[in-house]
């Protein structure tokens, strides 16, 4: 019984394969029917705040992204995600609304699998710790200039905030640079697909 091959093959490989099947492969098989959205498809729906960004910071926007359209939105999203990961934002902010602990009231609709089936969640950014609030329904919750002021100095906007400031999102004159614009675009994208219908005429809210 207590032979090298037993430990290597049964414990090392067989048990690992079994556990990994249930915990990693099976969920993947269950969810594989959900079509995966590419970056181009994701960037097709541009939230109003992105157009507003181009008007609010016209010189900077023109310099870094040109015109506000699907192409520049895609570029901004890609960079925004990169910065979000590099700054480890995902260690203090989650991107999932759970069906418990009144999170539906606080953040909005409970997360569901298909909203993660896109290139922006590769790698996934669900997160495991919340020092700051969840961001999965962030779109439209705060304005572009609020985000800019907040990145520059969080406690100025939210007294008592423990979030660090990010002066490297801004140039010497305190205007946003490419990273700053991209981060705000990314914030305004998160959850933009779940915003309440605005100005619904009949049967709307």
């Amino acid at each position: 019984m207590e032979r090298f091959a037993t430990f290597a093959l049964v414990a090392g490989i067989l048990f690992f394969a079994f556990g990994t099947f249930w915990q990693a492969v099976a969920p993947w098989l269950t969810l594989r029917g959900i079509p995966m959205k590419s970056m181009d498809e994701v960037a097709r729906e541009v939230p109003p705040e992105f157009y507003m960004l181009a008007n609010q910071y016209p010189e900077e926007f023109k310099k870094y992204f040109g015109e506000p359209n699907e192409r520049s939105f895609k570029e901004a999203l890609e960079l925004g995600k990169k910065v979000y990961i590099a700054e480890a934002c995902w260690h203090c902010h989650t991107q999932q609304v759970r069906p418990v602990s009144n999170e539906e009231f606080r953040f909005g609709r409970v997360s569901y699998p298909s909203e993660y089936a896109n290139a922006m969640q590769l790698p996934q950014l669900l997160g495991t710790r919340r020092v700051g609030p969840d961001l999965m329904r962030e779109s439209g919750r705060h304005s572009n200039d609020w985000h800019m002021a907040h990145f520059k100095n969080p406690p100025a906007v939210t007294p008592g905030s423990v979030m660090p400031s990010y002066p490297w999102f801004f140039d010497e004159k305190g205007r946003p640079n490419k990273k700053g614009l991209a981060m705000v675009a990314y914030m305004q994208w998160l959850g933009s697909w779940e915003r309440k219908p605005m100005y619904a005429l009949k049967g709307g809210e």
């Binding site: 609010q56 304005s143 572009n144 200039d145 609020w146 800019m148 002021a149 907040h150 520059k152 100095n153 406690p155 100025a156 906007v157 939210t158 007294p159 008592g160 305190g174």
Partner: peptide
């Protein structure tokens, strides 16, 4: 007010908080 508003609306409530210069509206 001091917990939530003072950053933008300012100590005296005159809209001149420390965050105000960065805000567009």
């Amino acid at each position: 007010y001091e917990k939530y508003c003072i950053g933008c609306h300012g100590e005296k409530g005159d809209g001149k908080g420390i965050a105000a210069p960065d805000l567009i509206v």
